[in-house]
């Protein structure tokens, strides 16, 4: 190992065998190098039978130095006999995790490279590497993270930019490439939060499984029209599409709820009275809420309640429970 300033032209910039960064934020790094220079030297390895070096760690720093028009860069250089691929990847990983948080796609890339290039066993990756990556060690999570690298590029970028939770990111990867594109077109304009994203993906996933269809057949023309509507505010679009998906996933429940809502409307309840149905119709009792400020109002409510008890629609609702 030697330490020296290396001309940037001697670095093979296309060689990204050890790159584990994906869409990192480089602006602050460039500003920092500009202000006080490079604090940590980059790590290079010589490439046999060439005069070039490959980057082990420091892809972003090199790029920032190029942006700043620097010609050479402080480097630690290993010969190829000194540093195996596995050790090089571990060096790169340790350098990264000690300097910044890695995003999910980087974690996926890192695990894959350690497996494919570093020939590290799955069990070692789970027990030794996952905790380093701030991942709970476990086979299922390992498999989920590994698959993320295969996602459509747009989705990978979406996951990084929106800091999508692993459970949701993993759901994306259960879809085909074609479906991933369709999902991307549906989800991007809606800017869904974690819970809504999970609900959307789960419904679509379950409908396609049940009906043996693909996502593009679920995202129907009605949903596309809603998405394209320039005048509809985003929260309203989300609610309308959400309702549509729910109807497709739970058609019987949706029909039942609709029937109850129709009957409730026909009851024409006065504003001071409200009637609630047990969640999911589990239970046999309706709940009435009312408020009053004097005896007179209470007497009026009692009269209205008595009238309510004779309405046909109430009987219909009770029969449905």
């Amino acid at each position: 190992m030697i330490y020296k300033k290396v001309p940037i032209v001697e670095i093979d910039l296309r060689n990204d065998r050890f790159r584990i960064s994906y869409m990192p934020h480089r602006k602050r790094l460039t500003e920092s190098i500009h202000a006080i220079g490079l604090i940590h030297p980059i790590i290079l390895r010589t490439i046999n039978s060439t005069e070039y070096c490959q980057i082990i760690s420091g892809f972003q720093r090199v790029q920032s130095c190029i942006d700043l028009n620097m010609k050479q860069i402080d480097s630690i250089i290993y010969s190829s006999d000194e540093l195996s691929d596995a050790k090089a990847l571990l060096l790169s990983l340790h350098q990264t995790v000690t300097s910044r948080a890695m995003n999910l796609i980087e974690k996926s890339l890192c695990l894959r490279k350690l497996s494919e290039i570093g020939h590290m066993e799955e069990a070692t990756l789970i027990t030794d590497i996952m905790p380093l990556l701030d991942l709970e060690p476990g086979k299922k999570i390992f498999q989920n993270v590994m698959r993320l690298w295969e996602l459509d590029d747009h989705l990978k970028a979406y996951i990084v930019e929106n800091n999508v939770a692993l459970s949701n990111a993993a759901l994306f990867s259960s879809f085909s490439r074609e479906d991933q594109k369709n999902l991307f077109d549906l989800i991007i304009p809606l800017r869904l939060g974690t819970n809504k994203l999970k609900e959307f993906l789960t419904h679509i996933d379950e409908i396609r499984h049940r009906d043996e269809i693909v996502a593009s057949q679920i995202i129907d023309s009605e949903m596309k029209t809603i998405l394209a509507d320039q005048n509809m505010p985003t929260p309203q679009k989300i609610e309308t599409i959400r309702k549509r998906l729910k109807e497709k996933r739970f058609p019987a429940l949706a029909a039942l709820e609709k029937k109850i809502q129709n009957n409730l409307r026909q009851l024409k309840l006065p504003p001071e009275l409200s009637l609630s149905i047990p969640p999911f119709l589990e239970g046999e009792k309706l709940k009435v809420d009312f408020s009053f400020k004097n005896e007179e109002e209470l007497r009026e409510i009692i009269i209205k309640l008595t009238a309510l008890s004779r309405q046909k629609e109430l009987e219909t609702i009770l029969e449905m429970l």
Binding site: E206, R210, F250, A252, L253, E282, M320, L321
Partner: peptide, 22 residues
């Protein structure tokens, strides 16, 4: 398996069940 593809709702005991009318 298709058994979990049906419509299930959370029952009062927290278990997932078919809709009551079903």
């Amino acid at each position: 398996s298709k058994i979990i593809d049906e419509e299930f709702i959370p029952g009062q005991d927290g278990k997932m069940r078919y809709l009551k009318p079903i």
